[in-house]
Every structure is written in C-alpha cells, then in structure tokens.
Design a binder for these strands. Structure first.
Lengths: 234, 234
DNA sequence: GGCGGCCGTCAGAGTTCCGTCAAGGACGAC
DNA sequence: GTCGTCCTTGACGGAACTCTGACGGCCGCC
C-alpha cells in the first residue's frame, strides 16, 4: 500500500486530503508543522509527501531541504502563493511538483499518482525483492526473514536496519547513514545503538555470530551486508 | 549535456523555448507534429520532453502513450486547456507534469529542472565510480577494493588516501593537498604520515610493493595514481 | 668520500572503536 | 495492576587503527 505523508497546518485541508486519500486506499500520516513532519518522515518512510509551504514553525523550503538531505521521496508542494519565484525556489530546493491553492482534488490526485508512478522501480525490473544467502532469506516486500524453513522474528528497529543494509548489498553503508535512515535525521553519532542492534541481527541470522560472514564491520567507517562467499560479480 | 525535445505546432512558442533552453546550455530538438516527435524521440533519446497537447496530426495523449510504450523519459505537458479532466487524462497516460498556457518561463524551466533531476541516477551512482587496473579494482561507491577475486580490507585513512588519488587518476597530487584532504586543513607538512600510509596501500594493492606501478612517487612533489601500462584510454 | 635531504620500512605505544552484557524505562496488551 | 516486548543507556575488555620515532637506502651536492 502506498503511504502518503500530508503536511499542512490547516485542519480542513488535512481532513479533506485524508478522507480522499483513504477512500482510494492510501495509507495516510499527517503532520501540522515542519518539525513533526520531518520526524514522521523518518519514522514512517512515506512513498510520497504532500507539503504545504505555509507552516507555523519553519519555512517550507527548509522542510524540503531537510527531507532531501537523506531521501528522494517525491514531494508535492501545496501553496497559496502564485508567485513564480516561490515556485522556482521550491522546485529547485528539491520539490517534484507545485500546486497552487485552491486546487482541484482530481488534479491533485492525478499529480500524486504521477509522482508515485515514476518513483516506482521499472516494472518487471531488476533484482527481485528477495535476497538469498546461504543461511537465510530476506523478503523485502513481505518483510519476512526465513532461516532454516522457519520465520525469524525481528523487532521494527532490527528490520529497518536489516532493510537498509540489504538494499545496499555489497556496498559499505556509513554509520551516520544507517543512524539517519533508521533512527532519523537528527541522529548521527549514537554508534552504540548500531553496535547493539547489529549484534541482535547477527545473533538471529548469522551461523556464528562471533564471526559474521554477512554483516561485516568496517572499523571506523560503517557496515556492509554481503550475500555470500564467492565474489562472483553482481 | 541535457537534451530536450520540444513538441509544439506554434512557431512562436517553439522559438521562445528554444532560445531560452539554448541560452541555458540545453541541447534542443523541435518537432511540430506528433509523428515527427515520436520519430525524433526514438532517434535522439532526449533526457526530457516538453509536449504541447494541441497538435495538428494526433491527440497529445496518443503521443504520451506512444512514448511510454518504450521509454520512461520525463514528459512535461503544455496545454491551453485548464480543465481538470484534461490534466488527469494526460497525467494518467504517463505525463510527469502539466503546465497551463500562458506559462511563466521561469516556472517552466524550474519544472523542467525538477523533472530532469529526479530522473538522474542517484548522485555518485553507477558508472564512473569503478576504476580498474591490472591487479585490482576500486569501487568508489561501495567503498570496496577487489584484488584477485578477494576483497581487500582498508582502514578509513587508507581509503581516504586511495580515494583522493583515484579521483585524480593520472594527475600529480601534491603532498600538501593529500594531507589537507585526508587529515584536515590544519595539516600540510606531516609527510611522514604519507610515507607510512602510502606504504600500506602499496603493500595491500601492488603486486611488487617495492616497485610500485600504480602508486608513483614524485620526489619532492607528491604522488600520482596510474591505472596501468598501456595508455588505453578510459 | 662525507653529508644532508628525501623516501621506504618496521615495530611499539597510545588511542579510538567495537562486541557484549545487563539493567532501566517506555509502551501496549491483557 | 502486571506482564512482556522493545528501545535506550552505561560499562568494560579486547580488537583495530593511528601516530610516532628510529633506522637504512638512495641520490645529489659540497
């Protein structure tokens, strides 16, 4: 299901959007200020963001920049301002689309569909959402990990961490990036969290947690998920 | 250079767009009807398409579908129609954005930039980040070095140093520049650091560390990374 | 030939970083 | 209220990394 984050300080607009989106089977989160929005975005990882520029606590463009610091999620800007400069500024800050109020709900939904559609992976494309290793199998779509024919129970944080690592299979992921993607953009130095949760993952998934073969530590830099032995290319 | 395909049957609009785009260093192709447009798109593979819905030979939505049959190139629709239905139809057919005439050139260009931006691969992604030599392979994105099918483990400082050298392949990098980039701006004379870490890199990566072929010392000046013998271009 | 500058090598000391364990607190289910 | 799950936090031993000094080789210059 597609998850939408709605950010607006006007309750009636939020309500209208929420009703319309839910009727079309979107999952909706709502925030009424920028700080909450950034927090929610980090926690919920929406598939698309609808952002009103006129927020009480911070400039809308700052919200865009805050999001763009760590995610490429589509951002659809709402604004009462018709000025060309405003639009240019928001779009160049990283917004994907700009709709002026008052807006037609049909049009907004169509633009939302367009934004979601193009951020989807190419149909029938690339590597599947299932990653196999010698010891366990990760199904990113089903959010399931199977080991020895038995499903492994992971806590939300454990899963999140695993997901980020698996999506970057083979690549080094810096501790800062991991912290920001899993715990939110305001984190970055709490490496003890990583140590604890990496240990949990290893305990649950590695054959020999003391000598991990899949969750590799790169001291001073970060962690890396490796599928298996042979470095047979992709 | 970014290539734009402009499709419109009104000469003055085409001219205005072409002038503005070329002034901003876009490469521009233009078509006055749908058939030519589809042909040009196939031949030139533009990075973004600007499409007027009112064409003489075919419906604009058909053009969108024709393009979407084989490409995900961003399509920015221009139209004189303000009707919500028109917008929804075009967007759902596969358009990425919809701008109503008359439009502000600044806004159009900003939307164009946004469309191009999000279709770009993630910065620092894909090609250009893998450097091959006879003995080893450096993947700058994954922060990985492979030698003889086996991953080589590098410490953070070793990586940093290697990275600076590889990003300047073939060029001489002064000792001061290396020290400042790796150890920070307040360094510049501690050449002993360089000697130690350069030795580590050679030991880990060179076939014969005593006679380096890739990490070349330029006495009194700095160091240079070379890919290999044969000066076969990239 | 002696000397000094520059570089490569090596090994040890000091520091940072990581894995592990365990306890405390927040939160929701019952 | 009570329980269980999960997240956070602190402490500690050990591993990994960085820094440092010493030594020797090479080369050009006096």
């Amino acid at each position: 299901m597609t998850r939408v984050l709605v950010i607006d300080d006007e309750p009636q607009i939020v309500r209208a959007l929420v009703i319309n989106l839910k009727a079309r089977h979107y999952e909706v989160d709502a925030a009424h200020d920028g700080a909450t929005a950034l927090q929610l975005a980090a926690a919920r990882h929406p598939d698309v963001v609808v952002l009103d520029l006129g927020l009480p606590d911070m400039d809308g463009v700052e919200v865009i920049k805050g999001l763009r610091g760590w995610t490429r999620v589509p951002i659809l800007v709402l604004s009462a301002r018709h000025s060309s400069d405003e639009k240019v500024e928001a779009l160049d800050a990283g917004a994907d689309d700009y709709v002026t109020k008052p807006f037609g709900m049909d049009e907004l939904l169509a633009r939302l569909r367009a934004a979601v559609r193009r951020s989807e992976p190419v149909p029938g494309g690339e590597d599947g959402v299932v990653v196999d290793t010698a010891e366990f199998t990760v199904d990113l779509a089903a959010k399931k990990v199977n080991r020895g024919g038995r499903d492994v129970r992971l806590t939300p944080t454990e899963w999140h961490l695993l997901e980020v690592l698996v999506r970057n299979t083979g690549r080094l992921v810096s501790q800062k990036q991991l912290l920001q993607e899993v715990w939110g953009p305001s984190y970055g130095t709490e490496t003890n969290y990583l140590r604890v949760y990496m240990a949990q993952l290893r305990r649950k998934l590695e054959a020999d947690p003391a000598h991990p073969r899949h969750f590799i530590t790169e001291p001073g830099m970060g962690y890396r998920f490796e599928k298996g032995e042979g470095a047979h290319g992709k």
